[in-house]
């Protein structure tokens, strides 16, 4: 089996997976977060508690769920309740991490998954918020997973579906959102990014193997904060890739 090379999706899954701590709660949406959570449980975080919006808490992700309400989201789980319970649990501050994707992101981590173009006459009508706005509003630390290019990393999103740091420091609190919440990391196919403690603007933390800082800058539609020291992420290990390919996504729905 080929393990020396990997595709961008596999890379994002592995990097996101490493951010999932053992013994923590993580709100999991459709797609890459599901794969990352499953991989994390099989690698370093057997007691990661995945939480799915329609009611699944603490599933063992032996097989990849295809929908946020399907039975695999409460496979051998600890509880199977409903959406109000889950969202209220998030609103009460019980959920540490929230994993999200989107079509566009801006320097403050605001996310768009509603429309491209004008809301009332959209160029592309996207699915809408779903649980994204709730995850971004209530989870303590939001981790965003997205492909990295200038169409996606934009100076201003067409529509703020999910609040990041809005217009900057203090804006979330001013809007009435819970203090101490907000975007924490962005995992792209080029780099791992964070948010500057004071300015709340997106900051480069580490590039992926074989990627230069210049490439990251070229593919970002706004000025990133580049610290003096930029790390390099460890490539997906043969073990991570094996589990991902042979166990997590055997049917190759994503990877």
């Amino acid at each position: 089996m080929e393990t020396s090379t990997y595709n961008p999706t596999e890379l994002m899954i592995c990097i996101a997976s490493r951010l999932m701590e053992d013994g923590t709660t993580a709100f999991i949406g459709t797609g890459i977060p599901m794969l990352a959570a499953s991989l994390a449980q099989k690698m370093h975080a057997p007691n990661l508690i995945p939480i799915f919006e329609f009611g699944g808490t603490g599933a063992i992700l032996e097989r990849l769920p295809l929908a946020v309400g399907e039975q695999r989201t409460f496979n051998k789980a600890l509880a199977a309740s409903g959406i109000c319970d889950i969202m209220e649990t998030a609103q009460r501050g019980f959920i540490e991490y929230g994993f999200l994707g989107g079509a566009q992101i801006d320097p403050y981590g605001n996310l768009n998954s509603t429309v491209i173009g004008d809301h009332d006459h959209p160029k592309v009508r996207l699915p809408g918020s779903g649980g994204a706005n709730d995850v971004g509003s209530h989870c303590w630390r939001t981790i965003i997973i997205m492909r990295h290019d200038k169409r996606r990393f934009v100076p201003q999103v067409d529509f703020i579906t999910t609040p990041g740091y809005l217009t900057g420091p203090g804006a979330r609190e001013e809007a009435g959102l819970a203090p101490g919440t907000g975007p924490y990391r962005v995992v792209s196919n080029l780099a791992l990014l964070g948010f500057h403690e004071e300015s709340k603007r997106m900051t480069l933390l580490a590039v992926h193997p074989g990627v230069t800082v210049e490439q990251v800058v070229e593919n970002t539609g706004f000025a990133l904060i580049i610290p003096n020291h930029v790390g390099t992420n460890e490539a997906p290990t043969p073990e991570e890739l094996r589990i991902l390919r042979e166990e997590v996504d055997k049917e190759r729905l994503y990877i």
Binding site: M87, Q91, T114, H119, S129, N133, D134, S137, H138, F159, I160, T161, T162, P163, L166, A171, R172, E174, A175, G176, L177, A178
Partner: peptide, 18 residues
């Protein structure tokens, strides 16, 4: 009363109130 949608366009294009 809830704490979702605050600060977002999801709120701006809804019929909710703050």
């Amino acid at each position: 009363p809830v704490r979702s949608m605050l600060g977002s366009d999801t709120f701006n294009y809804s019929a909710a109130k703050v």
